[in-house]
């Protein structure tokens, strides 16, 4: 994972936990130096409820945690090494 850069995460699905049992799942479109996230196709989950919210900016101060699925992380890493392999 350590070889990955922020730009590698662009386009991948992040699971962002906010306060009070609120989770936003969306694909990362942009991130700034303060780690304010811009997510697209956001799905909000609260309890058992789920709804879509489109393009959402998530300020760093609201973020409790950012998670990514293991398979997706594997894919990211695999792509990265493949790419590096090609260069080498």
């Amino acid at each position: 994972m350590d070889a990955l850069k922020l730009s590698d995460f662009i386009g991948s699905t992040l699971i962002v936990s906010l306060a009070e049992d609120r989770i936003l799942i969306g694909s990362l479109v942009a991130v700034d130096a303060q780690m304010n996230l811009l997510l697209d196709h956001v799905e909000e989950r609260i309890g058992s409820g789920s709804r879509m919210m489109g393009l959402v900016s998530v300020p760093r101060r609201s973020v409790q945690s950012i998670k990514i699925t293991k398979p997706m992380l594997r894919d990211l890493a695999a792509n990265k090494f493949e790419l590096m392999g090609n260069i080498v």
Partner: peptide, 11 residues
């Protein structure tokens, strides 16, 4: 305005 409105202009 969201943070990204400011990012759009300021950055």
């Amino acid at each position: 305005y969201s943070i990204y409105v400011y990012r759009y202009f300021l950055n």
